[in-house]
Design a binder for these strands. Structure first.
Lengths: 340, 340
DNA sequence: ATGAAAGCGCTAACAG
DNA sequence: CTGTTAGCGCTTTCAT
């Protein structure tokens, strides 16, 4: 592989001049510039970013770390981030944390984060204590529902409130037995699931209804299959479900399938509402009703915050929460108008 | 940020000893080892992988480059690769090529590939001439339907044959007007779309049927929306479609939605079959009929080939083709048995 | 406008 | 078992 000094030799200049040309640092005559560029092409030289990073401490690359690649929500998110960063001349790489063997690897991957100029981390397995152990100089913006130590920038969504709105709509349109699929029975820490389950409870409380713990359906992985089984079983067992709040759209897809398996009509017999407003949701089952967590806004804020943090580290940690918005489509009934 | 020599100083040893401890190179007394490890923890030292890479030429990291993160197929693929590589003690990072501004960036990202021990590239925009310009020492395994230069390892699937099987099934079960959604009318080069369209034509030829060019429906991006509009329009325009071969499952989701929009029953009025057998396909519309391109096998082979190429570069390029398999679910009718 | 020297943090190769 | 020397390919700094 050719190095900079190969180019320098071929062009009859010093490596410094080649470096200056390649970095557009001006102090080079147009003529020299051209000659160098010519040789670069001729030799097929490609800069070694590793060496640059070691010396200059910059890669123009940021990383996004998500729990899984094969969940629609994270796929959409990754695509949105890639676009947003591309606009700012940055390159995005995505890593999956879910599959990695914990132990040694988790330590190693901390080191790996230092290879980037900045990191957007969507932690799922890691609790606040784990996160607090993160001590690298790389700017990090946290995403998602976990509790994160104060000192990190954090962009999240209105999980409980969004869930409350969704369940309130279900109740408002006549449902009395609202199952929450993917909910958390016992809360071991604050998770996406636990927060959305809190919202489910809150909606019941608001309406003066009892929230039957029997209606909290946990699902085994993979979540879609788990949800499909869980709801089909619930129907078979005669739980009397007349509406479902699925904690994610992904899970809602499983619920829709399970309901179809059981021969239940949506929204006629059972209403269904999801959470995330994933891209594909507009297209399934005539349009899945769901909660838009404001992903657009989240991406914008996270990018903006990371850019600011990379530029200068001396501002107070930002803690941002995106408001949620109900998106009513074909899997729910309209609430009787309360206006008149 | 602490460096190795900080640790060395604190532990009263040389940097080489620290390096040896961290790399498990044995030649260190248990006692020294412990002392070093102790200091590492105490100082919170994290190895600088960039420096290691520069010196040792190894990152234990491989990259997968896909056109988009937000297509179910690539999400599934990425997850499968991540798992396969994790099993072999390698870390996977995923990059998206689709969003990147061409021009300068495309050159730059070539340089970026050198930061990895190996690369799996799923090229879409790039033609063979572009690919031939790739001249980096990093082992690369190509994926997908593009024609790639001989000198690259290449793992792909039976695109035309899979499509032929799908369309043959449709015809066999009575369809006479099989639209291909996402097909390629004029072929500018060999693409996924053009190959699957070839299969659609071949099935017609096999059955002694004329393939009506009117039934080749191209779709605008985003593909799901494009497909939804295209099929709805085709139905409205009275094209007489009685079956649809969607060139990807993603597009099939759009077709299903468009058919629903038009009030057409599936598979009663119109059968639908996709291609890819994406994870979620089992769950939509009672189960989407599709073509399994053997993704599992593809992932295994690609990983195996890349590992071999990283270990030693001196074997002939491998060109592997995965066989396709029909997966019949609820969106197609059974073919009348030809057995009796 | 161009170049020489120094060194980023680590490890290969060898010496003790 | 441990340390010394050299240098990966680039950019910073300072000279010319």
């Amino acid at each position: 592989m050719a190095t900079m000094s190969d180019v320098a030799r071929a062009a009859g200049v010093s490596v410094m001049t080649v470096s200056n040309v390649l970095n557009d640092r001006g102090r080079v005559s147009a003529e020299t510039r051209l000659r160098v560029l010519e040789k670069v092409r001729e030799i097929g030289y490609e800069i070694d970013l590793t060496a640059r990073r070691l010396r200059a401490g910059r890669t123009d690359t940021v990383a996004l770390i998500v729990p899984r690649f094969d969940h629609a929500y994270f796929g959409d998110l990754a695509a949105a981030f890639a676009e947003a960063f591309a606009l700012r001349g940055r390159h995005l790489v995505v890593e999956q944390s879910g599959a990695s063997v914990e132990g040694e690897l988790s330590a190693l991957s901390l080191a790996r984060l230092r290879m980037y100029d900045g990191v957007i981390l969507s932690p799922v397995g890691l609790g606040a204590p784990d996160l607090d152990r993160i001590a690298i100089p790389t700017p990090i913006v946290m995403l998602g529902e976990q509790q994160v130590p104060e000192r990190f920038d954090h962009v999240t969504m209105a999980n409980a409130e969004g869930a409350r709105m969704a369940v309130a709509h279900l109740i408002g349109s006549g449902a009395r037995r609202v199952a929450i699929v993917g909910g958390a029975r016992a809360s071991r820490g604050v998770t996406m699931s636990s927060q959305r389950t809190d919202g489910w409870r809150a909606a019941h409380a608001d309406a003066g209804l009892a929230a039957d713990p029997e209606l909290v359906l946990e699902v085994r992985e993979p979540a879609v299959d788990g949800a499909r089984d869980a709801i089909a079983r619930a129907v078979r067992d005669g739980l009397g479900v007349d509406a479902v709040f699925a904690v994610t759209d992904q899970i809602a897809f499983g619920v829709l399938a399970g309901l179809a398996d059981a021969g239940v009509a949506v929204p006629g017999d059972v209403q269904v509402i999801g959470f995330d407003d994933v891209g594909i949701s507009r297209h399934v089952a005539g349009g899945l009703s769901t909660v838009d967590p404001g992903s657009r806004w989240i991406v914008e804020q996270a990018v903006e915050t990371l850019e600011a943090r990379m530029a200068r580290a001396d501002f107070a940690p930002r803690h941002l929460v995106s408001p949620a918005r109900l998106v009513l489509r074909a899997t729910t009934k309209a609430a009787p108008s309360s206006r008149r």
